[in-house]
Every structure is written in structure tokens, then in C-alpha cells.
Amino acid sequence: MRRTILSSILVMLAGFAHAQTPECDRLCSRDFMFSLDSGLDVMPLVADGEHANGHMEDGRTPLIWAALDPDDEDAIVFTSTLLFAGGDVFAQDSKRGMTPLHWHLFRVGGPMKEVVAMYLGEGASVISKDNFGYSVLDIVNGVATAELYEVYELPYVNDEVADMIRGWAELEERWKDAFGMHLGRDPTSVRYFEVLAEEGYIPAMYAYASVLEKPKVEGFTPDIEQALYWYEEAASVGEVNSIFHVGSSAYSGTDTIEQNDAMAHEWLSLGARHGDTNSQSLLGLMYANGKGVERDIQKGLMWMIISLRFGEDTPDRVRLIDEMSSALSYQEVKEAEQMAKDCIINFFEHC
């Protein structure tokens, strides 16, 4: 299958729905040092071409830092949502080793339940340690000391959020054990995956579906019908690995999933609207080539530009996006850029 693309076209996101941010008055490159007081001030840097998961000179990742405004609840939800549009909930800044969920817990007034639920829904870890040796669970349980985090006091975490995190920690520990067993080819691990999937642990849904599709332990044969069921279950809660796996498999055809353009378009469209850059770029290629859909190079370019916001501009991807741009007029390329901006601002709705 031909690899898909991202490129160096810059997409500006000025005028966000939830936050007013200043324009970036020069190209905001990877070596630009953060020296800003407000977390939201960094959004133009990300908007102006900075990769969401890249580390800046001071060790922070752009979208972790961007989500730090402690007083604006709309901004918290907005930046967290943007993080999930292509950022990495497992990312750790190199300065403190803190994940986005670590940072979120230190907001003034305590963490917001709905945002914590978003992080957990993405499979964020609550037991992984930062550079000080503390996990999100440690913070919730009051184990971490405030001085280590350079704050005046540990955050207030209400009982409902604390119970949510503690419950997730139990699932994560069981998942860690089951995954270790699976690496050792222990057939019992498949049953543990199944139980965890049924209990709603999202990473286990994808793992169980993968095992059902291509068993790698003795005593199991492929069960494609059940595999697709669990891929769909995972997809229904936004698990993008499941979505892209089925979409890309249907795009090219595999030993277990037949080539099916309509199925590929359906799943890749779902993945694209969940912010998955792989789905976005492959969907863009489908439109550009007229594969399973009416050919629309401009719409294909739109999805490629969107995928650039949070992906990597490899040489192959740059070459492909240049080919698509060269097939359009200058005005059509500018319109595709505006379409991409509008799509991102509206969180991939009505694209």
C-alpha cells in the first residue's frame, strides 16, 4: 500500500472558539524557547506548524503546556479536546516527566471530572511515574509532596474523580499483568483480555480484537466476526487504533479482512473525525485517487493538511502533498487550507 502523507503547508488556527490567542508574528519553529506566562499563549505556536508531540528546548510538549490555563474551564476542555485530536496522552515532558493528566490534576480548584474521563477514555496511564517517582494515583492518594511539584499545595481532588482514578488504576494493573502474560505466550492472557474488554478497559478491547483476528498463542483460531465486534466496540468509544486498523485493512485487503472500498471509507472517515492522523491522510489519498469515492483532489488535500497538524512531515509525505497541490490551482489550494482550518476549529465536524 502506498504510504500516505503530511507536508509543510502551515494551517493557521486563529480565532479559536473558546480562547482568544495572539497571532504568532514569525515562523514558530521547533527551536523556539517557551517564555510565556499563559499556557494558552502557546496555541499559536502549535497552530503555526509546531507538531503536537514534539519537545521544545525547555522540555515541554506544546499541547501539554497549552492546556495549563488554570482559571478558564472552557479553555481546559478546549485544549484537552485538541490534545486528543492528535496529541499523545502518554507523552511526558522531558523536564519533569509529567503526562498531560499529571498537569491537569494541578489546575486551580482541582481536576474537572469530564476532562479526567476524556483522558481515561484515551487509555491514559494513572500508574506511570514521572521524574520524581510519582504517579497520578499517588497524587490522588496524597502521596506526592507539594514541594517536588513547585506548587503551594497538593490539588484538591473530589471523591468522585478520585474513585474514578483508583478504579482505573486497578484495571490498569490487571491489564499490565495480562499483557505481560501475553508477551510470554500464555494462553490464559486471552481470557484476561476478554474480561477486561467486557469491563470497559479500552486498550483491552483493541488487544482482544487483535488476538481474535490473528491469534499468537496456542489453542486459538481466528474469529473474524468476534474480532470485528470488538473493533467496533472500541471504535464506538473513539479508540483510533481499532478504527484505523479496520479502515486500512479494508483499503488494501488482508488475509482476514477483504478489500472493500466502501468499508474503508466508512472506517477511515470515522477515524479522521476522531482526529487520527493516519486515518486522515489515508482518507485524503482515497479522495485524491477517487478510490471508492468520487474523485475530489481538493478535499483530499484538505484532509492531508489536517493530518499535518499533528503528524510528521516525512519526505515521502511531502512529495505526495506536493503532487496533490500541483494538480490544483493556487486558489484551490488556498481554499483547501481554509477548509482544513474550518474543519479543525469545529473539531472535525461537517468536514
Results as ranks from 00 to 15, higher is better:
residue 13 L to P: 00
residue 295 R to F: 01
residue 288 A to Q: 03
residue 19 A to M: 12
residue 54 G to C: 09
residue 132 F to A: 15
residue 246 V to T: 02
residue 7 S to R: 03
residue 330 Y to S: 09
residue 146 A to F: 08
residue 69 D to N: 15
residue 258 E to T: 05
residue 166 R to F: 02
residue 256 T to Y: 00
residue 114 E to Y: 10
residue 199 E to I: 05
residue 178 A to K: 08
residue 282 L to C: 02
residue 169 A to R: 01
residue 261 D to C: 01
residue 82 L to R: 12
residue 95 K to L: 14
residue 156 Y to N: 12
residue 69 D to E: 13
residue 246 V to D: 00
residue 279 S to F: 00
residue 334 K to Q: 14
residue 239 E to P: 04
residue 166 R to M: 13
residue 92 Q to F: 02
residue 233 E to Q: 15
residue 332 E to K: 04
residue 178 A to H: 08
residue 33 M to K: 10
residue 343 C to N: 05
residue 217 V to M: 04
residue 333 V to Q: 04
residue 4 T to R: 02
residue 160 E to C: 06
residue 261 D to F: 07
residue 232 E to Y: 03
residue 49 G to W: 05
residue 176 K to A: 13
residue 263 M to R: 09
residue 271 G to R: 15
residue 80 S to N: 14
residue 256 T to P: 00
residue 42 V to W: 13
residue 126 V to L: 06
residue 304 M to E: 02
residue 277 T to S: 08
residue 298 Q to R: 11
residue 230 W to P: 03
residue 2 R to L: 03
residue 176 K to I: 05
residue 53 N to K: 12
residue 155 P to K: 15
residue 255 D to M: 08
residue 279 S to K: 09
residue 307 S to L: 05
residue 319 R to Y: 04
residue 33 M to Q: 09
residue 205 M to A: 08
residue 20 Q to N: 13
residue 180 G to M: 08
residue 75 A to F: 03
residue 55 H to S: 13
residue 181 M to K: 15
residue 15 G to K: 12
residue 262 A to F: 05
residue 155 P to T: 14
